[in-house]
Write a protein that binds this DNA or RNA. Structure first.
Lengths: 206, 206
DNA sequence: TGTACATCAGTGAACGCGCGTTCACTGATGTAC
DNA sequence: TGTACATCAGTGAACGCGCGTTCACTGATGTAC
């Protein structure tokens, strides 16, 4: 009773987290555009005004979700890069983990990169979390091509961006639908990733 | 007078096209989420009910814009591939034209790939236009590696997808903000594209 | 251990608003004879 | 060349609706003495 009765407590306990979770659920159903603060409050079992004790406004809730997403991605990337010491294998593992993050956390990915009009990228916390998540890729490319950075830093940047584009593109095409809608449903996504990253990141010469 | 007075005619003349143009303008300002049919009508100088004589509903207006976008992309890709007969050069030109399309037509790109919750990909006309736009890339890869398709069709699919991911990722990172927000403003986008496509598509071995 | 009090995290009603869509309508246009 | 009429493409008012946010409030919780 004391346990299950938690819901009818006046104070919620962890409303902040609950709001974030339900925000994700809602976006999963209705897309970023269809998501409303009032409905998040409603399905969290709380009045429409309650969220304002935890987030200054709607955008700040989205930003908090984005930060959370980047932290999860950061963690996934960290784990992936620890699996190997060989930087080539590392790079491949990072790529796969990036795409699998998007596939397994479609909604986070949407909020992180598709919060169309919300200027999340002007939010310092979001920017920071994103930079951390990206740093693994950068570091690994630095390991792979130590001379690239010294010789010509724009080549280093380009190498990073090439890899990032590659995996981000694959993730985007999957998450946004064209890939799932197209004929390529024949291949399962995970095999596809291996095939592509195998092609793109093993036999390549930067 | 007869010329400029066009606007105060009862019949608009080309309302359908006007609505599509103003739809794009609006999305440019407010994002796909912020766009409303009523406001499109308003800035087109027409009553809120008028658009319903040209589009069944809001989604159909968006779909029409997406189709238009894919046709423009198709045309750009066609021109790019005609510049060269060497398939390697063709491929590079196609890649550059894809990214430049996104950069120069940010809003179209958004509608085409980011119409978050509108199920545009279930619309047959959209799918069809998209397939056409993508066919140039496919054909060129077929030219480049004629044996790939015959030997193992999944390798062919993977090669297409690798290229598509690459350019789509670069386009996405630019259009969605992270690339512009990050430090890489140092390099102008066009140089960046050349650098990256040079790395990725010339020295590569599928 | 009890009490006074500050603070926290809820409530419910209200604000002003614009939305998508439908409806019966009417003015403009094109066509057949 | 003129007229009757169908059709097209607008209008304006109304529908029901839910939104984000603010406000004064109150119940619950934690802390100092």
């Amino acid at each position: 009773m004391a346990e299950t009765g938690r819901t009818d407590k006046y104070h919620h306990g962890d409303l902040r987290q609950t709001l974030m979770n339900n925000c994700l659920k809602l976006i999963e159903d209705k897309g970023v555009s269809g998501f409303t603060l009032r409905e998040v409050a409603r399905i969290s079992g709380v009045s429409a005004a309650a969220p304002y004790h935890h987030f200054r406004n709607k955008t700040e809730l989205l930003a908090a979700v984005a930060v959370m997403g980047f932290k999860m991605l950061d963690e996934a990337q960290r784990k992936a890069s620890q699996q190997f010491s060989n930087p080539g294998h590392k790079l491949k593992a990072l790529g796969k983990s990036y795409v699998m993050f998007a596939v397994n956390h479609k909604v986070y990915f949407h909020v992180m990169f598709r919060a169309n009009n919300e200027p999340l990228w002007e939010n310092a916390q979001v920017m920071n979390a994103a930079k951390h998540a990206l740093s693994h890729l950068e570091n690994t490319i630095r390991e792979l091509y130590p001379e690239a950075e010294k010789g010509n830093s724009s080549h280093f940047q380009a190498a990073v961006l090439t890899c990032w584009s590659m995996v981000h593109g694959l993730a985007s095409l999957w998450v946004d639908g064209p890939l799932r809608a197209a004929e390529s449903g024949k291949l399962e996504i995970e095999k596809l990733i291996d095939l592509i990253l195998g092609q793109a990141m093993t036999h390549r010469s930067f």
